[in-house]
């Protein structure tokens, strides 16, 4: 089992529904977010190109946050999901400094918070909230080791990239290009 997500940058319109769905589903405190939308504009008018990406924790295979955590609060869970155990986290921010995607933040209650791939939902066989609500259906989620899962099928058909591969983290959010 290896969970991953693929996001179609050609279909994403940047509506931020995924951001709001996540905040609602996970009770993210007001003023914070676990996922966000990036718009890249390249060129000068009229030769313009645009790419829109919905970004979040990459649930890396070689997670610097798990490596740097002094207490083991940041850990790998089933399916390669990177999670934080709240009552083990001391809030030292080593993981925040170690993440090349700046995907983590300090929760107002003190511990470090981030995307969980909606672990509580996928355990029930549901999709993560962001994937579920996407109005353009540009997000695909599933098990990379299952060749018939949504994410495996789309990654076979399309070209894709990951963010900051040079950081050596082996990220698992794929952007279809």
């Amino acid at each position: 089992m290896r969970y991953a997500m693929a996001i179609d940058t050609k279909k994403c319109v940047g509506c931020s529904d995924c951001v709001v769905a996540c905040q609602t589903e996970n009770n993210v405190p007001i003023g914070y977010c676990r996922d966000w939308v990036v718009e890249v504009v390249d060129g000068t008018y009229p030769q313009l190109e645009i790419e829109i990406r919905s970004e979040r924790c990459n649930h890396c295979d070689n997670s610097p946050c798990v490596r740097c955590c002094p207490t083991g609060a940041s850990h790998y869970s089933d399916g390669g999901i990177v999670l934080v155990t709240e009552h083990k986290c001391i809030g030292c921010a080593a993981c925040i400094q170690s993440c090349p995607y700046d995907a983590r933040f300090s929760h107002p209650d003190g511990y470090v918070d981030k995307c969980t791939f909606c672990n509580h939902r996928i355990q029930k066989g549901e999709q993560p909230a962001c994937v579920e609500v996407c109005p353009t259906k540009c997000m695909y989620f599933g098990d990379l080791e299952d060749p018939n899962s949504d994410v495996s099928v789309i990654l076979k058909k399309r070209k894709y990239k990951v963010l900051a591969p040079e950081a050596g983290t082996k990220p698992h959010i794929y952007f279809l290009i």
Binding site: S16, G31, V37, E39, V41, G43, Q97, F105
Partner: peptide, 23 residues
């Protein structure tokens, strides 16, 4: 010219616009 912007308004305290959690 290439410009990258977070358009969903990410303003995580001590993280954005750049990390300053270690004071």
């Amino acid at each position: 010219m290439k410009e990258e912007l977070i358009i969903s308004g990410r303003e995580n305290f001590l993280i954005d616009p750049y990390i300053h959690i270690w004071e």
